[in-house]
Structure formats: structure tokens, C-alpha cells
Design a protein around this nucleic acid. Structure first.
Length: 423
RNA sequence: GGAGAAGUGGCCGAGUGGUCGAAGGCGAUUGACUCGAAAUCAAUUGAGCGGCUUUGCUGCUCCGUGGGUUCAAAUCCCACCUUCUCCGCCA
């Protein structure tokens, strides 16, 4: 959510960044409502001041045993007008809030302006895609041949886009989770959290999933509970409605959770294998930082995610998303993409964003600056550190051998209890 | 799920219709005292929105949340949420 006052004073900026995002949101009705509300507010506040004064007079008159019925009558009339105006203000507020929650975040000045993913800018590459002496297979072929990936059973138990992992496949998933959690907690200074996997509508609104993206989420029928699409939601909301001290910042949190996404609107894409699932595991990093340090923290966060892939020796590249490709709540996003030999392409495995104060304003998380002063909104950052299922895919495909077996990267061997290959 | 109790400022805690945004205490900050510290004393110490003669003054709102009654609500009424205790159920 953006600051309404800022929108009011920077109309042109808002219009131009909405255009850069290909967003057709019209701010005119919003500004009109804002104007009307402020006019009514002045009116009702004046009336209330008069009523407060009158009520005090009634009190003191009664204390002296005098008759106050005339003032009471006047105050009753004022009260009725106040009620009408406040009712209208309430309606405007609700509408204003709805509109504000639908305005996307303002992109940072360093973000490339562009229409879509074709305008994303590659920042760096790491590693060289391996030359195979044979035709590298896709992970679904490797996994099914080894008996560790079962797509049929996933579909039978739930529906398509669910997978059953078996044996060393299930263990590899678990190994990746533990490896990443250990890396981030022991080397990068994150505090491990185990959050709820279901959260309230308010929490979903805090990070921006609601109200706009309800169709992408799974909701419980009888409760105000939603399955999290990413641990970003509970982690970022950990300090909702709090005022922190600047000395506490930055806060680093990391969590493993399953993630649940309806993937509505992704019907034809990545239908084979487990690249795009309704349920997938992810280790997620979240930071709350001061306004001055958040972009520095974004660089570190992205490096923390890249470190996972360096440790596993998997080729990858990092790109900066253009204004047209960026998510709703982000001011700047780096995607990390791994090399998938079977597709001969880099594919997204992590997304690291600085949301600045966009989420903080929604969930009301502030900090008191050093040396006192008014509380200001924190900057929130999140990044996959990293997607587990896609990492498993990357390991299977990049570490496959001609005979169909898969070599376990050295860093994972301890987590696989000494297993060095799956065959 | 059933029965009961409770939700007040950073914390504890008083307040059952009228100068209550809220006593008192703790904590914090500043000053005095001190060579310094402690102790003591004094002052200050919530948030949001707005106005102004803008380092201060001022209006409105906020006592779990949302409604209602009233000239006036922390205080009365209704609904909901959360916490605690007991029962039931369960891992």
C-alpha cells in the first residue's frame, strides 16, 4: 500500500509508474474520494468539538443543579448530523481502502523499465553449463526411471500438479531442506522459524496476497484460514502492528514450509514434471530492515540465495526484473535462474525482492529511528533460499550420468547420510 | 464442542456514566545533587489524522474488535475475537 498523501502530491509519478507496470489502475476516483473525505472530516470534527464543549456544560450545569435541557437538545441535533457525516466517511474509507490495496508498489529507480520478461536484465552468471557426452534427460524421465518421482500417484491421491517422492527422492528433498536451513542459520545469520502453514485473511492482506490474488490461494471452507503460498506471508507478518527499535534491525528470518498455490491461469505451462506444483517445499528468507539499509540488504539476501547454488555447484544466473515483469508488492526484484540441461534454458529458482514500505504500511510495522522521533515504516525483503523442488530437479538434471544414475553433490552427502549417488 | 473468568498506556495496575488520554507504581529520558556511580529529588515520557503565528500551540479519534444506548461511554447493552480455568475430545 502506498501513502495516500504521497499519491495526492505525486499524481504524475503514480501515473507513470503504473504505465511502466502495464497496470491500468485509474487514480482519479481515488483522489476524488480522498478530497471528499477530507472535506467531510473537517466538518464533522468541528461539530464534535462543539458537542464536546456542550456536553461539558451539561455536566457542570447539572453539578450546580441547573437545568440543561436546552443545551442537551442542541447537542442531540449536532449528534444526528455527526452520525450522518461519519456514516458517509465510513463508506468512503472502506472504498478508499479497497482502492489503495489494489495499487501496486512503486518500482525503484534502478529497475529497468520494460514491457515484460524480455526486458529483464541479466546481472551475472556463475558456472558453465556442463557438456554432456549424451543427450541429457528431463527430470521426469530420470526420476521415474529411478523410482524416486511418482507423478501418477500424485495425481491419483490429489490431482495433477502433485507429486509423490519415494525413497532416496524423499530423502534428497529432506536433505536439501536441512542443508539450506543450516547454511542460512549458521553462515548467514538468520533465525530459524517454524510458522503456521495456514494464516488468517488479515495476514494474507499484510503481505499483499489479498484482496487482489484470492484466486491464486487455497482457502479453508469453514474458517478464515488460507494455506500459505510462501513462508514470506507468516514471516513478514511476524511483527505486524508493532513498533520496533531501530537498534533491533535488521531482523533476519528463515523458514522451511510447504507452499500451496492454485496456479490458476498457468494451465498450459510446465505441465510435465514437478517444475510447477500446487504444493512445493521452499526455504524462505525474510528481512526487516531500516529504510537506509534495505537495498544493501537486498544485495546480501540475493547473495545468500546464490550461495546455495554455488555450494551445490549448479550453474545459474541472476537477472533484474523489468517494471513490466515485477510482482505486485515489489520495488525491485532479482530472480535467480538455474540451468536445466534438458530444456537448454535457465529457469527461475529464487526470487529476491525489496518491498520497501509497501507491506509494512499494510501490516503496520514500524520502528523508532535511533535518537527518537516519530516511528517510520520498516522495509521488508523476502527471497527464496531456495525453492526445494526445483533444486531437486536441478540436481537430477545437472548431476545425471549416462547410465541413468545421479551423483549427489558433495555438500549434500552428509545430509544424505553418506549416500553419494542414487541409482 | 460445553461452562466460567478476564482483556486499560513499554510493563504492572486503579478506574462502573460527566474536566479520564486515563490515578499510582515500574521502566525510560533529561536535569539537580556527586570527583563519579548508586540512592534521592524534580521534570518529561502512547499512537493516528488535521489546523496554525510549526522545534511549540491546537482540534478530532483511539481503554481487545465492531455495532448500539446517551447531551456525554474505559464505564451501560449486543455481537465477535483472544487469553486463562474446568469438562469433553485429541497428537
Amino acid at each position: 500500500m502506498l501513502d495516500l498523501r504521497w499519491i495526492r502530491n505525486n499524481e504524475d509519478d503514480v501515473r507513470s509508474f503504473l504505465a511502466a507496470r502495464n497496470n491500468d489502475f485509474d487514480i482519479a476516483p481515488l483522489l476524488a474520494l480522498d478530497e471528499e473525505k477530507r472535506k467531510l472530516l473537517t466538518e464533522t470534527e468541528e461539530l464534535k468539538a462543539r458537542r464536546n464543549e456542550g456536553s461539558k456544560k451539561v455536566g457542570s450545569a447539572r453539578a450546580r443543579g441547573e437545568d440543561a435541557s436546552q443545551i442537551m437538545e442542541e447537542m442531540r441535533a449536532i449528534g444526528e448530523r455527526v452520525k450522518v457525516i461519519d456514516g458517509r466517511i465510513g463508506e468512503i474509507d472502506a472504498r478508499l481502502n479497497d482502492l489503495l490495496l489494489s495499487v501496486p508498489n512503486r518500482p525503484h529507480g534502478s529497475v529497468p523499465v520494460g514491457k515484460d520478461e524480455n526486458d529483464n536484465v541479466e546481472i551475472r552468471r556463475w558456472g558453465t553449463p556442463k557438456e554432456f557426452s549424451f543427450e541429457p534427460k528431463a527430470h521426469w524421465d530420470i526420476g521415474e526411471a529411478l523410482g524416486i518421482l511418482d507423478f501418477e500417484k500424485g495425481a491419483a491421491l490429489a490431482q495433477s500438479r502433485f507429486t509423490v517422492l519415494r525413497g532416496q527422492g524423499a530423502r534428497l528433498e529432506r536433505a536439501l531442506i536441512n542443508f539450506m536451513l543450516d547454511l542460512h542459520t549458521e553462515q548467514h545469520g538468520y533465525l530459524e522459524i517454524e510458522p503456521p502453514f495456514l494464516v488468517s485473511g488479515k495476514t494474507m492482506t499484510g503481505t499483499g496476497q489479498l484482496p487482489k490474488f484470492a484466486d491464486d490461494l487455497y482457502k479453508c471452507e469453514n474458517d478464515d484460514l488460507w494455506l500459505i503460498p510462501t513462508a514470506e506471508v507468516p514471516l513478514t507478518n511476524l511483527h505486524a502492528d508493532e513498533i520496533l527499535e531501530e537498534e533491533q534491525l535488521p531482523l533476519y528470518y528463515v523458514a522451511y514450509t510447504p507452499c500451496f498455490r492454485r496456479e490458476a491461469g498457468a494451465y498450459g505451462r510446465d505441465v510435465r514434471g514437478m517444475l510447477r506444483q500446487h504444493q512445493f517445499d521452499k526455504v524462505e528468507m525474510v528481512k526487516l530492515a531500516s529504510q537506509e539499509t534495505s537495498y544493501e540488504e537486498l544485495e546480501k539476501l540475493t547473495d545468500n540465495a546464490e550461495e546455495v547454488l554455488r555450494s551445490l555447484d549448479i550453474p545459474h544466473r541472476t537477472i533484474c526484473l523489468s517494471t513490466g515483469d515485477m510482482g505486485f508488492g515489489s520495488s525491485k526484484t532479482y530472480d535467480i535462474e538455474v540451468w536445466l540441461p534438458s530444456q537448454h534454458k535457465y529457469r527461475e529458482i529464487s526470487s529476491c525482492s525489496n518491498c520497501e514500505d509497501f507491506q509494512a504500511r499494510r501490516m503496520n510495522t514500524r520502528y523508532r529511528p535511533k535518537g527518537g522521533g516519530k516511528p517510520v515504516y520498516v522495509h521488508t525483503l523476502n527471497g527464496s533460499g531456495i525453492a526445494i523442488g526445483r533444486t531437486l530437479i536441478a540436481v537430477l538434471e545437472n548431476c545425471q550420468r549416462e547410465d541413468g544414475s545421479v551423483e549427489i553433490p558433495a555438500a549434500l552427502v552428509p545430509y544424505m547420510r553418506g549416500v553419494t549417488e542414487i541409482r
